[in-house]
Simulated scan of single mutants.
Amino acid sequence: MELSENEDALQLEMLQMLLKRLLILCTRIFKNHKNFSALDQPHSDLIREYNFLVEKHFKTKKSVAEYADLLNKSPKTVANLFSKPGAKSPLSYIHDRTMLEARRLLGYTDKSIKEIGYVLGFEDIQAFSRFFKKTKEFLPQNSRNL
């Protein structure tokens, strides 16, 4: 039995609403757990904007300095923002997002490792393999089975 387009749209809308609720609940739990109330509003806004920029540019921008330029801040200022809540370093956010996309592409596409490295902004396959090995301690070709 096929679903009509209206039923598909309704299901999609319902799933989106549930996902939004889940994200809101997870954010609240995380904030309570990490004690983000100690942060003032400008600092939390800058962290949020930094994370948004990483999400938007992680394929082309690989350094904290590049994101600091986009925020009109110095790299040291950006690093200090992340040290206040005791969170990961700004560079680890870039690496984590790149790794997440690499694993997604390796697991769910038929693209070659060289193509995936190129999509993620690496100059050559060796640079991509070094990044992968440094962050996860195994090579991309081995991760296709994960």
Rank of each mutant, 00 (worst) to 15 (best):
K56F: 08
G86S: 06
V64R: 07
L39M: 06
A9L: 15
D40T: 01
K114M: 04
S74A: 08
G117T: 09
E115P: 04
K73D: 06
P42F: 08
K73G: 01
D45V: 03
N35V: 00
N72R: 11
N35E: 11
D8P: 00
N35P: 00
S44W: 12
D45S: 13
E115W: 10
F128G: 03
Q16H: 13
A87V: 02
T109C: 09
A102N: 03
N32S: 10
P90A: 04
G86I: 02
N6S: 12
F128S: 01
S129Q: 02
Q11D: 08
A87Q: 05
G86N: 08
F122T: 01
S63W: 09
I113G: 02
E7C: 10
L23G: 00
G117S: 08
R144I: 08
R28P: 03
F128I: 03
D8C: 11
I113V: 13
N80L: 07
Y108V: 10
L46P: 00
G107A: 11
N72T: 09
Q126F: 08
S4V: 02
R130L: 02
L105V: 02
K133T: 00
N51R: 15
L15I: 10
Y118N: 12
R144M: 03
R48V: 00
E55H: 14
E13W: 12
A102H: 04
S63T: 15
S74V: 01
D124P: 03
F128D: 01
Y50N: 09
N142W: 15
E101R: 05
S129M: 05
A9S: 13
L139D: 03
F131W: 06
F122M: 03
I47A: 09
T27H: 14
N51C: 11
M14K: 15
K31F: 06
S143G: 04
E115T: 11
A9C: 07
L81K: 04
D69I: 01
L120I: 08
E2F: 14
K59S: 06
P85S: 14
P90S: 03
R130C: 04
S63Q: 13
E123N: 05
F122S: 02
K111A: 10
L139H: 06
F36E: 09
E115M: 08
I24R: 15
I29F: 11
L23N: 12
E123A: 06
F58W: 13
M1W: 15
K20M: 13
L106C: 01
T27Q: 15
H43S: 08
Q16F: 13
L70R: 05
K136W: 14
K134V: 02
H57T: 01
L81H: 05
F132V: 04
P42N: 09
F82L: 07
I24F: 15
E55L: 10
T77I: 04
Y108C: 12
